[in-house]
Amino acid sequence: MSATVHLATPLGPLALTGSEEGLSAVGFLEDAVPATPLAQIPAHLQEAHRQLRAYFGRELRDFELQYAPLIGTEFQRRVWAALLGVGYGRTASYLDIAKALHDPKAVRAVGAANGQNPLAIVWPCHRIIGANGSLTGYAGGLHRKQWLLAFEQPTRQGGLFS
Rank of each mutant, 00 (worst) to 15 (best):
A92G: 10
G137H: 14
E20Q: 14
A54I: 02
E59Q: 14
A3D: 15
L119V: 03
L23R: 03
F75Q: 13
K105E: 15
Q51T: 05
L101G: 12
A54W: 05
G140A: 13
I41W: 04
L52M: 07
S24E: 09
W123I: 00
L84E: 15
G140H: 07
P118R: 08
A82F: 06
L23Y: 08
E47T: 08
H6Y: 15
L60D: 06
S134M: 06
A100Y: 06
W147H: 14
V79P: 02
L7A: 11
R50L: 13
K145R: 14
Q76L: 02
Q153I: 00
I121N: 12
I128G: 10
A43M: 04
A15P: 11
P13Q: 04
A32C: 00
N114K: 13
R50Y: 14
T73M: 04
P13F: 04
V5I: 15
G89H: 05
L23E: 10
A106L: 02
A68F: 08
K105S: 13
G140P: 13
I71V: 11
G159R: 08
V33E: 11
G57A: 15
T36G: 05
R144C: 05
A81E: 14
L101P: 06
F63H: 02
A112F: 03
K105C: 00
K99S: 06
T91C: 13
W147I: 07
F28M: 09
A32N: 01
E21R: 15
M1C: 02
G87R: 02
R77L: 00
Q46F: 03
E20S: 12
P69T: 10
D62L: 05
A35L: 11
F56S: 12
W147R: 09
A81V: 00
A43Y: 05
H143P: 05
L70H: 08
G85R: 13
G137F: 13
A112I: 12
S19M: 04
A139L: 08
P124D: 09
Q116W: 09
L148D: 07
E21Q: 14
R77M: 01
I71P: 00
R50I: 02
S93G: 10
L11I: 12
L38P: 00
L60M: 06
R127L: 07
L29H: 00
F56K: 09
T4P: 00
Y55T: 03
R50T: 14
F151N: 06
N114Q: 07
L149Y: 06
R58L: 11
G133M: 04
L119T: 03
P42A: 00
G137Y: 15
V33D: 10
L135R: 12
F63G: 04
L14H: 10
A32I: 01
S2M: 12
R108L: 11
A100W: 07
L95R: 15
K145A: 11
I97L: 15
A68E: 12
P10Y: 07
F75K: 13
G57C: 01
R50W: 14
T136S: 10
T9S: 08
T9D: 07
L70N: 10
Y88G: 09
I128H: 08
G87C: 02
P69R: 05
G72Y: 08
F161N: 09
T155N: 07
A81Y: 05
L119I: 05
A113E: 01
V86S: 05
